[in-house]
C-alpha cells in the first residue's frame, strides 16, 4: 500500500519533470524563431541603414554614455530626496482622510479634495504649473530653483497616489484589530500608530514599490523645466550630434535600474499573495 503510494508519487514527479522540460524546449524554440526573424527581417527593411545609424550608432553610444551616466546621478538624487518626503506627506494625507471625529472634518475634506485634484491632473501639468509658476513669482534664490519646485511638483502628485495606497491598506485591517486595541484602553491615535499602521504599511509595500519605479521614471519630466538630468542631456547630445542614439543610451540606463526593481516588486507581491492564501 505505502510502496504503491511512493511509486505513484515518483511517477508523478517524473511526469512533472518531463512536462517542465518540454515547455522549456518549446519556449526556447519559439523565442529563437521570433528573435531570428527580427534579426533577419528588420535589416531587410529599406530604411534600416538610416535607422541603425541614427538610433544604434555604437561610436556615439560609447562617447555619450559617461556623461549621460553622470547626469543620471541627478535623477537618482532627485528621486532620493523625493521618495521619503512622498512617503511622509502621503501618510499625513491618509491619516487625515481616515479621521472620523467631526472636529477634524476640515482635515478630512482637505485630504479628499487633495487626492482628487492631484490624481486627476497629468504629472507633467503639475510640473509645469508648479515648476514654472512659483519661480515666476520672482522669489529670491534659492527659492526660485527649478530643482526645488520640480521636486515639489513630483511630491505633491505622487503623495496623492501613495496616500490612496496607504488608505486601502488601513481599510484592509479588520475592525476586530481596532476593537481589541481599544478595549485595552488605548487611545485612537495609539491604535492607529501601534496596531493599524504597522500592519497596513507592510501590506501595501509591494504597491508602493511600483510607485517608486514610476517615480524613478517620472523624474525625467523635470527636464522640461530646467534641471539638466539625463533626459535633457540626451536632448542636448541629440541636437549636437544630430543623432538619437543618446536617447537609446538613456533608455538602457533607466532599464538597468527599473527592470531589477520591477522584478523585486513582483517577487514581493507574489510572496505576499502566497502567504495570504
Amino acid at each position: 500500500m505505502s510502496e504503491n503510494g511512493a511509486g505513484k508519487q515518483l511517477s508523478r514527479l517524473e511526469y512533472e519533470r518531463k512536462a517542465r522540460r518540454r515547455s522549456l524546449i518549446i519556449a526556447g524554440l519559439s523565442t529563437t524563431a521570433v528573435v531570428g526573424a527580427l534579426v533577419v527581417l528588420v535589416p531587410l527593411a529599406p530604411g534600416w541603414p538610416a535607422v541603425k545609424n541614427s538610433f544604434f550608432n555604437w561610436e556615439i553610444f560609447v562617447r555619450t554614455s559617461p556623461t549621460l551616466l553622470r547626469t543620471f546621478l541627478l535623477d537618482v538624487a532627485i528621486f532620493a530626496w523625493c521618495a521619503p518626503l512622498i512617503a511622509i506627506w502621503a501618510l499625513v494625507i491618509a491619516v487625515f482622510r481616515d479621521t472620523r471625529s467631526p472636529a477634524l472634518f476640515p482635515f478630512r475634506l482637505f485630504a479628499i479634495i487633495y487626492t482628487d485634484i492631484f490624481r486627476g491632473v497629468p504629472v507633467i501639468l503639475v510640473v509645469y504649473l508648479v515648476g514654472f509658476g512659483i519661480p515666476g513669482l520672482g522669489l529670491p534664490r534659492p527659492w526660485n530653483s527649478p530643482y526645488l519646485w520640480g521636486s515639489v511638483a513630483l511630491i505633491l502628485t505622487y503623495a496623492a497616489y501613495v496616500a490612496e495606497i496607504y488608505r486601502s491598506g488601513i481599510e484592509s485591517i479588520h475592525v476586530s484589530q481596532r476593537n481589541a486595541a481599544l478595549s485595552l484602553g488605548l487611545s485612537q491615535s495609539d491604535v492607529m500608530r501601534y496596531v493599524v499602521l504597522p500592519q497596513a504599511l507592510r501590506r501595501v509595500l509591494p504597491a508602493n514599490m511600483n510607485m517608486l519605479i514610476a517615480l524613478q521614471k517620472d523624474v525625467a519630466l523635470l527636464s522640461f523645466i530646467g534641471p539638466v538630468e539625463i533626459f535633457r542631456q540626451a536632448g542636448v547630445f541629440k541636437s549636437l550630434l544630430a543623432n538619437f542614439t543618446p536617447y537609446v543610451v538613456a533608455a538602457v540606463i533607466f532599464l538597468a535600474v527599473t527592470v531589477p526593481a520591477t522584478r523585486f516588486a513582483d517577487t514581493l507581491i507574489s510572496r505576499q499573495n502566497r502567504r495570504r492564501s
Partner: peptide
C-alpha cells in the same frame, strides 16, 4: 474591564 473575543485578535505584527 478586560475583554477576550472568540477570534483571539492578537496583533500579528
Amino acid at each position: 474591564i478586560g475583554i477576550v473575543f472568540q477570534s483571539y485578535n492578537l496583533f500579528p505584527h
